[in-house]
Amino acid sequence: MSRNEESQRVVIALTETSPVADLWEAAMQAISGSSAELTVIFLHDERWHRAASLPFTREISQSGGSSSDFTLQRAEQLLAATAASLQKNIEELADRAGLSVAFQVLPETDRAQSRTLLSLGASIVIGPSVLEQHPIFVELRRTDLRIVFVAPEDRDNE
């Protein structure tokens, strides 16, 4: 039995700025012809929350340049909106491919939980190239886990 014919658990790791379509394409190539359990993990960084904790931080609108206080509440709001948008995007892609998908949101600082979710029973982990030097991935690369990093329009950086 070839690897493509086995039932696999494929994990896609995402950040706020990841090329979703490219990552999805790489995942589809990886599971081509076989049944697979697909999990998407959104690893969000803490930058917005950290910046929002400062009393003088302001958000400058990209349409018009007006500025407003950038609070923790605003950071939470942005994170939730980003996660929802990514989840919707992923679910639409999964619908079209006829696959079911699980979606998880984790802070990148929660290394233990992230490592568990990424590696537990996974056959392949697909992530954006920006995570290549992330401590969790540095750790995972030391294991037997097959990891694929995808840069925009470049899906062969295994």
Partner: peptide, 13 residues
Amino acid sequence: GVLQTPTGYVLAP
């Protein structure tokens, strides 16, 4: 640093 949000930019040390 210039951080990008879905609707704009945030400047943070």
